[in-house]
Simulated assay, not measured.
Amino acid sequence: MKAVRLHAQNDLRVETVPAPQAPAAGWVALDIIAAGICGSDLHNFRTGQWITRSPSIPGHELIGRVSALGEGVTGLSIGDRVVADSRFWCGDCAACEAGDHHLCERLGFIGEICDGGFAEMTVLPRRLLHRLPEDLADDAAVMAEPVAVALHAVRRLRLEQDAPVLIAGCGPIGGLAALILSDLGHRDIRVADRNGARAGLVAEVTGARVVSLDSNTDSRVRYGIEATGSTAALRALLSCIGNGGAIALVGIMHGTLELDPNLLVEREVSLIGCHAFKDEMPEAISLLARCADRARALVESEIGLDDVPEAYRRLIAGETVGLKTIIRP
């Protein structure tokens, strides 16, 4: 079968590899329908931070159709369409026993611990698969995983209904957070991104207002979402947050931040870490069923496996306007 494999930092190849063997007990074979390229895929490509096995097939945002069932698998049938939960947790540590699988002490992800969706087929544990409603379009359904991530960040903020929210970064998570806030009825959503066309697209789809992080100090907001991964953007966002406010940190950071802690102490500003998602996947699927057309409007393009290396280049260079590039094997 054809697959995209990450061999090392900055070394991504389209190759022909053996198809997966029959699924083991508790595992399920999938024919990949679609997979999304995530910012963390690009981060791993650029830094090698999460390369634990090489070569590996990336792709933790994926939907597929069940083609074979391992022994003991229940609740799924051949032909079912499913979306993958990206988190590969151990099930034995204190966090897992408490139901906090996203905080597992040995947490890994599909595409790292096991091969992911940048291929024609894959094999995954049954416990990571959610059946999809058949009337949810593929190009919306494949965004269930990043929607769950964005939803987790929004939940962690514990927003007041009418309070303004400023989102730094209109990539997939920032844009989907704006979509979630719009769906929840928030009327004052502000977005900032150095790519003006992308910010404009998010504003058009969600009803958000495009602002600059450099022009909000006289009109500070209570809540912010940092979805850029830029320490410079976080510093700017901090200046836009009013006393008693909070920022959800969901972007994967490059570099470290020099920060005077008194800024947080004296103004009682909270920085809230948001890692992956907890139990938001079913709600994310339901939200996409309501907002499918708007979610699909955020898609940049659909590509084949041969086009993935060039898509990585364009995404890293910031040449895209749409938020999500979808692979169709």
Score class of each variant (00 low, 15 high):
His254Met: 10
Glu283Gln: 14
Val321His: 04
Ala236Phe: 00
Ile303Lys: 03
His275Met: 07
Thr228Phe: 01
Leu249Gln: 05
Val308Ala: 06
Asp260Arg: 07
Thr231Phe: 07
Glu283Gly: 02
Cys240Gly: 01
Ala295Val: 06
Thr228Gln: 04
Ser301Ala: 12
Val269Trp: 07
Ala248Asn: 07
Arg328Phe: 11
Ala233Val: 07
Gly251Ile: 00
Leu315Asn: 13
His275Trp: 14
Val269Ser: 03
Leu259Asp: 13
Ala297Tyr: 02
Leu237Gly: 01
Ala233Gly: 07
Glu283Thr: 15
Arg314Gln: 07
Ala317Ser: 13
Ser270Thr: 04
Arg235Gln: 15
Val321Asn: 01
Ile225Val: 15
Tyr223Asn: 03
Ser239Arg: 10
Val321Pro: 00
Arg267Thr: 09
Asp260Tyr: 12
Lys324Leu: 04
Glu319Asp: 11
Leu287Cys: 03
Pro261Gly: 07
Ala289Asp: 11
Ile327Met: 02
Arg290Pro: 10
Lys324Ser: 03
Ser301His: 03
Ile303Met: 01
Asp260Trp: 03
Met253Ile: 04
Arg313Tyr: 05
Glu300Thr: 13
Glu310Val: 06
Arg290Val: 00
Arg294Pro: 06
Tyr223Ser: 14
Gly251Pro: 05
Leu305Tyr: 02
Ala297Arg: 11
Glu280Asp: 15
Arg294Glu: 13
Gly245Leu: 11
Ala276Cys: 14
Pro282Glu: 12
Ile225Trp: 15
Ala284Gln: 06
Tyr223Pro: 00
Val269Pro: 00
Pro261Trp: 09
Glu280Met: 03
Glu302Arg: 15
Cys240Asp: 13
Ala246Ser: 13
Ala233Thr: 09
Glu258Lys: 09
Thr325Ser: 03
Gly244Lys: 14
Ala233Leu: 12
Ser239Thr: 06
Val269Glu: 05
Leu305Asp: 00
Gly251Arg: 04
Glu226Asp: 05
Val250Thr: 12
Leu288Lys: 04
Leu287Glu: 10
Arg328Asp: 06
Thr320Met: 06
Arg235Ala: 11
Lys278Gly: 01
Cys240Lys: 02
Leu263His: 05
Val250Cys: 03
Val269Arg: 13
Glu310Tyr: 01
Leu264Arg: 06
Asp307Ser: 12
Glu266Leu: 09
Ala289Cys: 12
Val299Ala: 07
Leu315Trp: 09
His254Trp: 08
Asp260Ser: 08
Pro282Asn: 08
Thr228Cys: 10
Arg328Thr: 11
Arg328Leu: 10
Ser270Gln: 12
Leu259Tyr: 01
Val321Leu: 03
Ala311Phe: 03
Thr320His: 08
Gly304Cys: 02
Glu319Gln: 12
Gly224Ile: 09
Ser230Phe: 04
Arg314Asn: 09
Arg328Glu: 14
Ile316Cys: 12
Arg267Trp: 01
Ile285Leu: 11
Glu300Gly: 08
Leu234Cys: 15
Ala227Asn: 15
Glu266Arg: 14
Val321Asp: 09
Asp260His: 15
